[in-house]
């Protein structure tokens, strides 16, 4: 069991899209995955269904100590659960996010989910404050999406600095990788940013998978589903998250999960 935080300094880079679709892809690959929405805006719920966006969740655990087990929403995909944000009064966002900042509540979720899940994925609000810092404190690993455009790329150093500061204070969090998102392969300026990061950052830091800017994401959020469930024959973009999940597995510590690595015979 380990925690995996999806975090970035900048908003609008696709954190929720990554958190949701990566969780779905990981669960399909056999990881029992609990997706926890720490964003007071309830982005995961808003990406899926109205019912989920209004369901009790993390806020109810934080304020009323409702047991976590009763708040997890099981999905139709076996092994994928979601802990929504819950109802937060409009003027309580700051209190909510500050209540998660020390990481204790989010770490306790892992303890509560032990044996039922292999990984807890935290979707976070933008910026390295409050709930995002709490999720990073509670996590072993961080994946940071960076939008393929200049302003986002110019903020990329911040994630290294924040992880360095957390590690200096004894939190064993590791950066699993930087994920390029919203890459527009037909726009020279977007490609130029990607090329700059490919050249500048060490090769082991960037995931080979990149998330293109694709209307299928808009379709999926309008339909309230992960992109892999958009239709019976999912759009090609859904494969990106399968690739990302596979890369992620290769980067995880060998003791994170027992994986049989032998080839699987197609025929006897």
């Amino acid at each position: 069991m380990f925690g995996l935080t999806i975090a970035s300094q900048k908003g609008g880079v696709g954190k929720t899209t990554v958190a949701l679709n990566l969780s779905y892809a990981m669960a399909r690959r056999g990881w029992r995955t609990l997706l926890v929405d720490t964003d007071p805006a309830g982005a995961i719920g808003l990406s899926l269904t109205k019912k989920l966006s209004q369901a009790p969740g993390l806020a109810d655990h934080l304020y009323q100590h409702t047991p976590i087990a009763g708040l997890i929403v099981e999905t139709k995909l076996k092994g994928l659960g979601i802990l929504p944000t819950g109802k937060i009064p409009a003027d309580e966002s700051e209190r909510f996010t500050n209540g998660l900042a020390d990481g204790a509540v989010l770490k306790a979720i892992q303890t509560a989910a032990q044996g039922r899940y292999d990984v807890v994925v935290y979707d976070t609000p933008s910026g390295f404050v409050g709930a995002t810092l709490g999720a990073m404190r509670a996590s072993r690993y961080v994946v940071s999406p960076v939008q393929a455009e200049p302003i986002a790329a110019r903020g990329v150093m911040r994630i290294f600095e924040v992880i360095g500061a957390l590690r200096a204070k004894g939190h064993p969090v590791e950066l699993l990788g930087i994920l390029l998102t919203m890459l527009h392969t037909k726009t020279q300026s977007s490609l130029a940013v990607a090329e700059d990061l490919w050249k500048t950052l060490p090769g082991n830091l960037l995931f080979e998978a990149t998330v293109p800017r694709d209307p299928a994401f808009l379709e999926a959020s309008a339909a309230g589903v992960p992109v892999g469930l958009l239709r019976r024959r999912p759009p090609p973009i859904a494969m990106v998250f399968d690739q990302l999940a596979a890369e992620l597995e290769a980067r995880l510590a060998p003791d994170a999960k027992d994986v049989a690595n032998e080839p699987i015979a197609l025929v006897d």
Partner: peptide
């Protein structure tokens, strides 16, 4: 900065797609 978080910058850069 990366050396402080245990990441080496000496590895080859990722091949461009």
């Amino acid at each position: 900065t990366l050396s402080r978080i245990g990441i080496s910058v000496d590895g080859p850069p990722a091949p461009p797609p």
